[in-house]
Design a protein around this nucleic acid. Structure first.
Lengths: 174, 174
DNA sequence: ATAAACTTTCAATAATATTTGAAAGTTTAA
DNA sequence: TTAAACTTTCAAATATTATTGAAAGTTTAT
């Protein structure tokens, strides 16, 4: 006699946490940070540092710093419970809000500085006849144009709290 | 007497290469790979391995592997010159094409596999009364939904060779 | 077939990023 | 004020990733 073998919850949780961690590290986000986020995403209640350390087998220091970073990214929040000293952590569960939060942070940390630099670099002066100079200027100007357009698009997207526009593009029906 | 001091080409080139490298490493792309790409982007002509090694002070092995990777990403191409043994490399200079190429590669390498996993994970079976199970299923299903919508959007974007739609969104006028 | 010109490989090394854990710091209740 | 409960810090250790360079491999002209 055979049983159809579907995946069980503990295995599924592990796989999800692992995959989220890998994805994070491929996108320049610390693997542990992504894993802690994944863990809180699939946890019904808020968790203590202790529980997180236990579940992911990480040290206290690591857990603490990672949780602090996640709060800095606006992806998780602290919860205080009356009569308890311990801090509880829980994640924002709305995927659209998560995406927006991440986009906002990376824009601030990376896009804004590079646009500032590109603006500076487009002012470089030189001989218009020099191919070196011409190619440099053209490339930098083009990238600057793209960066600014991405920037504008992100701003629109981030500003629109309830965006029929992006909603219709991404077909997200809450 | 004072001179208004604008940036000169060699300094500007250095800064651009450095910034592009940093940006790359923040997004999970090898810093050297991004720098070689930057160098070819601002070079009017194709360059040999030798010249690239020299300009960026990197080893032969590193240059070779990096160039191979960049070809794999579809960001640069080889050029053969009649009567010469050396290989010359040059970069695609159209920023929109670069963006599309990168999007395509990352979709293939990262989005596609994660969608596959998420599809699997949504089939997990368990007790609908169990909050652990419910939260897991809801979170994974929501993320899957977002991933699929991003996927669909990317496919549309990548398919449209000359897209009035994305063109109008990003306001790119070639 | 040979050798020069060039490219590729990969084990060793170096650089970078992450993690640990014990000590120091902080807060709260009594 | 004290001490227990909890959080934070950071130097050292570990793990990961990138780079080197010499040797092996390949191609082409003669």
């Amino acid at each position: 006699m055979y049983y159809i073998c579907t995946m069980q919850l503990p295995e599924a949780k592990l796989k999800f946490i692992e995959a989220w961690g890998k994805l994070g590290s491929e996108w320049g986000i610390n693997r542990t940070m992504a894993q802690v986020h994944a863990l809180l995403l699939i946890s019904p209640g808020a968790m203590t540092t202790e529980e997180i350390m236990e579940e992911l087998s990480i040290s206290r220091g690591n857990a603490n710093m990672t949780l602090r970073d996640l709060i800095g990214w606006g992806l998780i929040e602290k919860q205080h419970r009356a009569g308890e000293r311990k801090e509880y952590f829980f994640a924002e569960k709305d995927t659209w809000a998560i995406a927006r939060q991440v986009a906002q942070e990376r824009k601030k940390r990376e896009l804004d500085p590079i646009i500032k630099l590109l603006n500076e670099l487009t002012t470089v002066e030189g001989d218009e006849k020099d191919p070196e100079f011409k190619t440099f200027k053209t490339s930098v100007t083009d990238i600057n144009k793209l960066a600014k357009n991405v920037n504008r698009t992100l701003e629109t997207m981030l500003k629109a709290e309830e965006s029929w526009f992006w909603g219709s593009i991404f077909k997200i029906f809450k």
